[in-house]
Design a protein around this nucleic acid. Structure first.
Lengths: 189, 189
DNA sequence: ATTTTCATACAGTTTTTTCTGTACAAACTT
DNA sequence: AAGTTTGTACAGAAAAAACTGTATGAAAAT
């Protein structure tokens, strides 16, 4: 097998995984092409510079800059440092759990909190309205109906808060323990 | 307080909540305007027809049709039936837990499964490559390095699978019980 | 059987998001 | 101090997503 073929097979193997990554990375609020960037950094032998990324992905350096920032915010890549190298260096963060938890918590905890706040305010307004003396029966009934609806949502948000806490407190790992990777042994044929 | 004012205050109260909903509904892979549609249906006195929705939201009937479909797929609205009414009628599904679980599971379980499959195939290809007789040392080292990276991902996906199972099997509700809504009592002033 | 009513597929338009090239400020080199 | 190199802000271009109006087929009413 010549050099070219073996390189091609290596690329092919990597491509299979990267392609799938790009398909699902939007779950992390990250666009497909930035997902591909992640794959590129993942399989790079060494930490990469923005210029190397641009070279490898065929995209602009500007996009690499914004892409890497998005990946950093999701805890998917981290900045590294190497003596004598002036450019920023990036490599993937090996802790997939952290990335998942970061994104999951950031999204749902914020949504739960804000919705809950809005819900309470709406509830307060409705209750105030209902207590008005000379309220038409129709409006009063609708307000009561609204409160009923909202109490369903309220219960859910309470629950959702506890779920996000489960991840934030890392208690989830007591329930479903982290898997330790099995070190891939070099097997002989 | 006249009729107009009380109606306005009702609308204002509802608007506060709906506005917040639209801000976070994208977590369910649903666009803002469809989120607003959800809010409209939520506070409607009765199940709504597509025409009523179009009227209320000021959008086209076509958008109502596609919007309602998206909401149905997320288990957020359900079709109803009323004697003598030929049009389709929709109302919100009161089970917020189900909507959350549906979306959470659909997204992450699919991602986990597909990524895991790609991962195993990539791993197989790399292992095959490594076992080639006359492989350049450099390629071999890179392939080994890749396998190392992938085993980290593999462990995570195993874990993620268990997490989605937690929701799918409803075991999550043993850990964090559903809250029962407190029936809003009509309080006197 | 004909007509009416309804939901939705589809093509084209509008809006939003993503991407690029230029410009510039900060940090480093000489 | 003057000159490079590097990362990113910003405006405009390109691509993607959302929305609308027309058209059509299915179901109900006449």
């Amino acid at each position: 097998m010549d050099m070219e073929e073996s390189r091609a097979r290596l690329e092919e193997a990597r491509e299979r995984f990267v392609h799938e990554l790009t398909n699902h990375i939007h779950l992390y609020d990250i666009s497909g092409s930035v997902g591909r960037l992640y794959g590129t950094i993942l399989f790079a032998e060494n930490p990469m510079t923005l210029d190397e990324m641009a070279e490898k992905t065929g995209m602009s350096k500007t996009s690499m800059s914004t892409g890497v920032r998005a990946l950093s915010e999701a805890n998917m890549v981290e900045k590294t440092w190497r003596k004598g190298v002036r450019k920023d260096l990036y490599q993937t963060d090996p802790d997939w759990y952290k990335a998942f938890a970061t994104v999951f918590i950031k999204r749902w905890a914020e949504a739960a909190e804000m919705n809950q706040r809005a819900l309470l305010e709406t509830k307060a307004k409705l209750e105030q309205l209902i207590q008005e003396e000379d309220l038409e029966k129709e409006v009063q009934e609708q307000a009561a109906h609204d409160l009923e609806k909202l109490s369903e949502a309220e219960a859910f948000y309470d629950w959702l808060n506890e779920v996000t806490n489960l991840f934030e407190s890392e208690a989830i790992y007591s329930i479903i323990p982290k898997r330790t990777k099995e070190s891939p042994l070099h097997r002989k044929a």
